[in-house]
Design a protein around this nucleic acid. Structure first.
Length: 673
DNA sequence: TTCATTCCTG
DNA sequence: CAGGAATGAA
């Protein structure tokens, strides 16, 4: 068995010692990486020839069982620990000196002549230059990111590979964040991410293998030229195999490549393959490089094509054919289940309004919206409309059942899959969390408004982000398209792909249609709106709040914040009333009939300054009436010395709370004047 | 006790 | 404007 293939070697090879390593390599190597790989076979062939040569000229690091599994494992461990130091001797200087002195090859006991050695060395040096040239070309491609030199001895720096190692140094740095992306991606979108993960794994596998191929090429030539460094080379050399084929957790599963041939090793087939290749290579030495390069190119393009096809297949499956998602004419992407998302529909004339309140909105309501109402519970967030400008009272609605950005950068809320996933997660956390100081606490922290914290969990609630979304949008312009580009970007990243230029008309538009704006916190615009609403209602009911703040998720905390706002409004209002009532008495107003509030009044100016600072809202006359009544009440109470009673204001509150009027429906769909 | 509101403080 | 204590109603 050991000699089954040696007979096919060229004549000069017969002078070499029995290449027991040749078959040993196959025997001891797991099939994952070289079982059916043409490249691997080719490499093996090439490598074996060099090894055979080297074996005859050098002392082996592990001469007895150089490729046994246990020995490899041990060597692997050793090498992992000593990688940086073991490779150190392979400095560029030493490489240069070694390469310049091929005569240091020692004649071996099998009778290899020095001339033969010299010729071989020269030939392989030329080949190395060509192969490295090829590899350099590959390194310029996106896949070169994964040529991280794991198969490379870190200290290997020939004059040419020095440039490579520099390049690879950068590539290594690029690789780190890609790996770090993985967990986050997994958390973002479950199923599609799993698929993407698999594809990514495949890509990585192929890329790793390519890197190893590259490493082997280099290694072969290093071995050729650096026989004086033989021990280090041997450790490196063995490490190659260990890392490639026996490293735990590095099992390559690449269904698109021959690299991953899980079938039992067909020794006969391999032997045939090997022998044929060997014959070819040795009979046509000049074709060797070209063949290697061609095979490499072929494998590369085939693998990349397969991966890209699979990825696009997945994408189209996720975005178009998913039973949970369907794209409507108006550019909506909706889901049918509970985690339903309703996006805006342009233009305004055809829009529907989804009102989370029991009261139907003035505009027609879609059946889906009603369905949404039915499934909604008190504790759940409200699916609300993004208010539009005054001129479009019933315009777009941009509704979503559940916020999505959590543990994500704020611009991430575009990925529908991630959206749903996060909704579920968030739902669970919100409703099941027994730790009020976690998410619920964050959510119930209105004080975070305007105080973005560095904590990542606070980012989604960063009101600045929400506010910027709102304010940066010109009135009447389509909303929620701001994060589109980044969403696209993120989506691609979540698939672990290099940035592929997508067809603008297809995928990108698909992503565009899935953009949402979610308000999980109250913004300054909401505050402004609330203040203006105060001109109509001093004691808004929860229903009114829901109706007019339907663009935010009225969780308990948000609702409390709104209530608190109005409480503060009232506080200021009554303080002003008491203040001006006392002032009127001091100023000598003798009759309640002389107590009046007009738009010229100081009282009104104070109130208007507080609730309508921009003065861009026409305060309704009714408010003036109510203010006047309130002032009179205070005046009377003070006149009658009721203020001696600690709760003397309550009677006034009781009166005033009945003076609320309906808030114009225009407020439902607007942020500001 | 719970919830809503007011009062007080920063 | 928010947080929290105080208050009162249910």
């Amino acid at each position: 068995m050991h000699h089954s293939s040696s007979s096919t070697y060229p004549e000069d090879r017969t002078e070499n010692p029995p290449s027991f390593l040749h078959n040993n390599t196959y025997k001891s190597s797991p099939p994952q990486s070289n079982g059916g790989s043409l490249i691997s076979t080719l490499l093996q062939t090439t490598i074996e020839s060099k090894r055979t040569l080297q074996e005859s000229t050098t002392a082996y690091y592990l001469p007895d069982a150089p490729m046994s599994s246990s020995a490899l494992t041990n060597l692997n461990q050793v090498d992992h620990h000593s990688r940086s130091t073991t490779m150190a001797p392979l400095s560029p200087a030493s490489q240069a000196s070694i390469g310049a002195s091929p005569t240091r090859f020692r004649p071996n006991e099998t009778g290899l002549t020095q001339d033969w050695m010299l010729e071989l060395v020269d030939r392989h040096r030329a080949k190395r230059a060509r192969v490295e040239n090829i590899i350099r070309g590959m390194a310029g491609s996106p896949l070169s990111v994964y040529f991280t030199g794991e198969g490379f001895g870190e200290g290997e720096t020939t004059p040419t590979s020095h440039l490579q190692s520099e390049m690879l140094e950068n590539k290594r740095k690029q690789r780190v964040p890609q790996h770090q992306d993985l967990p986050r991606t997994e958390g973002v979108s479950g199923k599609s991410t799993d698929e993407g993960h698999t594809l990514r794994k495949q890509l990585q596998t192929m890329q790793r293998l390519l890197g190893q191929l590259q490493a082997r090429f280099i290694q072969v030539y290093e071995n050729q030229t650096n026989e004086s460094e033989e021990e280090d080379h041997h450790s490196t050399w063995n490490k190659e195999y260990v890392e490639t084929e026996t490293s735990p957790g590095e099992v390559f599963l690449d269904p698109y490549s021959e690299f991953n041939n899980k079938m039992p090793l067909d020794r006969g087939h391999l032997g045939w393959k090997n022998n044929k290749l060997t014959d070819y290579l040795h009979s046509n030495p000049d074709n060797e490089d070209k063949l290697l390069a061609d095979i490499l190119k072929y494998e590369l393009s085939r693998a990349v094509n397969s991966s890209v096809d699979s990825i696009f297949k997945n994408i189209s499956h996720t975005f178009v054919k998913s039973p949970q998602l369907h794209v409507e004419d108006g550019g909506m992407v909706e889901t049918d289940d509970e985690t339903m998302f309703l996006s805006s529909r342009e233009p305004a004339s055809t829009s529907t309004h989804v009102d989370s309140m029991s009261r139907l909105p003035p505009c027609s309501e879609s059946g889906m919206a009603q369905q949404l109402q039915e499934i909604q519970t008190e504790a759940l967030s409200l699916v609300v409309q993004k208010p539009k400008s005054m001129t479009r009272p019933c315009s777009l609605n941009l509704t979503v059942k559940r916020p999505l950005h959590f543990y994500q950068p704020p611009f991430l809320h575009n990925h529908p899959t991630a959206l749903q996933e996060n909704h579920q997660v968030l739902d669970n956390v919100k409703h099941n969390s027994s730790h009020p100081d976690t998410i619920g606490e964050l959510q119930c922290r209105p004080s975070t408004m305007g105080l973005p914290t560095p904590e990542i969990v606070d980012l989604p609630w960063d009101p600045v982000i929400v506010r910027s979304k709102v304010t940066s949008r010109p009135p009447g312009s389509p909303q929620a398209h701001q994060p589109m580009t980044t969403g696209h970007h993120v989506l691609l990243e979540s698939l672990g792909l290099p940035h592929i230029k997508m067809d603008r008309g297809s995928f990108q538009s698909m992503v565009k249609r899935t953009s949402y704006v979610l308000n999980e916190s109250l913004t300054t615009q909401h505050l402004k709106k609330a203040k203006l609403m105060f001109f109509y209602t001093r004691y808004p009911s929860s229903n009114v709040l829901k109706t007019f703040f339907s663009d935010v998720q009225l969780t308990r905390c948000i609702t409390s914040q709104l209530i608190k706002w109005f409480s503060n409004f009232r506080e200021f209002y009554y303080i002003q009333m008491e203040k001006f009532a006392r002032q009127a008495r001091v100023e000598g107003v003798n009759s309640v009939k002389d107590v009046a509030v007009s738009r010229d009044s100081e009282l009104f100016r104070a109130l208007n300054m507080h609730y309508n600072k921009a003065n861009d809202f026409q305060v309704p006359d009714r408010f003036l009436e109510v203010a006047e009544i309130t002032l009179q009440e205070f005046y009377i109470a003070i006149t009658l010395a009721r203020d001696s009673d600690p709760s003397w204001k309550k009677a006034i509150y009781k009166v005033i709370c009945k003076l609320d009027s309906d808030v114009p429906t225009e407020f439902k769909a607007r942020f500001t004047t």
